[in-house]
Amino acid sequence: MKRILIQFDPDKHPSSFDRVVAIDAGADEVFSYGGVEPEDVAGLVHGAIFTRGPADLKNSAIFVGGNDVEAAEVIAAKIKQTFFGPMRVSVMIDPNGSNTTAAAAIAAARVHLDLSEITAVVFGGTGPVGERIAHLLLKYGAGVRITSRTIERSTEVCDRLRERFPDGRLTACETGTADGRKSITRGINAIFAAGAAGVQFLKQPQWQGIEGLKLVVDLNAVPPAGLEGIEVTDKGETRDGITCYGAIGVGGLKMKIHKAAVNRLFDANDLILTTDSIDELATEVVGR
């Protein structure tokens, strides 16, 4: 029986990237739907769950992607509401690559550090990737500082994360001034730069001068680098005793995790792969 992945994308044109990765990951067919609205979901889900018997539903799965993370999360919630009893298929939720990228960044960091013993700052921590990196850092016991250009925005995201991690390890910060950035980085051991393209957070002398800094991960693939001096191809390179990763250096692992997650969807008909479950899969991938 063919393994069919049904792609739900809120964007006008469904992502060709996601479709190519799905085929390379072992899906036999990818049915791609763009411009998906919440009211479209039930009919598409019914087409997935009523076409095969319960024992064969593991051969069908749904991927929720697109660039609009909030819209994708609404669609994912609607998908789960449509399932009932054994009539369900596995679902992977990875809008804008946010879950697989965050999982790859954290998996790379865990090769070098015990996250329970560090304090990290997440520049751009209010974006989809940054918020998920912060979530996973907290999951592994790190102290975390989330930055945004306004304290209001970083506080909003911190409040959401504190509902899951209410133990006081999370701090909201803003990067509006040089003094603010200096304060944010005092006493940290790791930096994750996950901001928008074109935003540079620190010059090279600034991050290299941070006492106790052990690791930097810059996920910005578009010049200028989020952290000056980090090359996009850096993959565990050491500069002045600091381990460095760039966007492409992390990207190879992200692709392995993405493919492994798509492949995992066809193991059963009741899996929901999102931030934590994709992170667990990343641990398996790195272990290999």
Rank of each mutant, 00 (worst) to 15 (best):
G143H: 04
G127D: 02
K235E: 13
P128G: 08
R153S: 12
A134M: 10
L161Y: 05
G130W: 08
V217F: 06
A120D: 13
I118R: 00
E174T: 06
H112L: 11
E211G: 12
T233C: 05
G180R: 07
G143D: 03
D159T: 15
I191C: 00
A134W: 06
G212F: 11
L227G: 01
A172K: 00
L136I: 07
K139T: 14
D159G: 15
R169S: 07
T119W: 08
L170W: 00
G236V: 03
I118E: 05
D159V: 14
E117L: 13
E174D: 10
E131N: 12
E174M: 04
G125W: 05
V232E: 09
D234W: 07
L115W: 13
D159K: 14
Q200E: 08
P128I: 07
D114A: 14
A120Q: 08
K203M: 13
S148G: 08
L215A: 13
G198K: 03
E152V: 12
D167V: 09
L137A: 08
G125T: 06
I184L: 09
F192K: 01
A178G: 08
P224C: 08
F201P: 08
D179P: 09
F192R: 03
E228F: 01
D114G: 09
Q200R: 14
I210Q: 13
R160L: 15
P224F: 07
E117S: 15
A134K: 07
I146P: 03
F192M: 06
I188N: 00
I184M: 09
G198A: 10
G141P: 07
E211V: 15
V199F: 04
E163T: 13
E117H: 11
L115A: 03
W207E: 04
P224G: 05
L215F: 06
I151N: 02
I151W: 03
Q208W: 09
A221S: 15
H112P: 03
V157W: 04
H135D: 11
R181V: 15
G198W: 00
E211Y: 10
T126C: 05
L215T: 11
G229A: 07
Y140C: 01
K203D: 14
K214I: 14
F201M: 11
I184Y: 03
G229F: 01
C173T: 05
G209D: 06
V216F: 00
N189E: 04
Q200F: 03
G180T: 09
G229K: 00
Q200G: 13
C158G: 13
L161C: 09
V122R: 08
A193R: 02
G229I: 00
W207S: 04
D218R: 00
S116N: 11
R186L: 13
Q204L: 07
I146Q: 02
G209V: 05
R132G: 03
I210W: 09
T175H: 04
G125C: 05
R160E: 14
G176L: 12
K214L: 15
R162D: 12
N220R: 12
S148E: 05
F201Y: 14
E237M: 10
R169F: 01
E174W: 06
T147A: 02
V199P: 00
P223K: 09
C158W: 06
R181H: 09
T185W: 01
N189I: 06
H135G: 01
I133R: 05
R186E: 15
L161G: 09
K214D: 12
L161I: 06
L115C: 09
T155M: 08
Y140Q: 05
T175V: 11
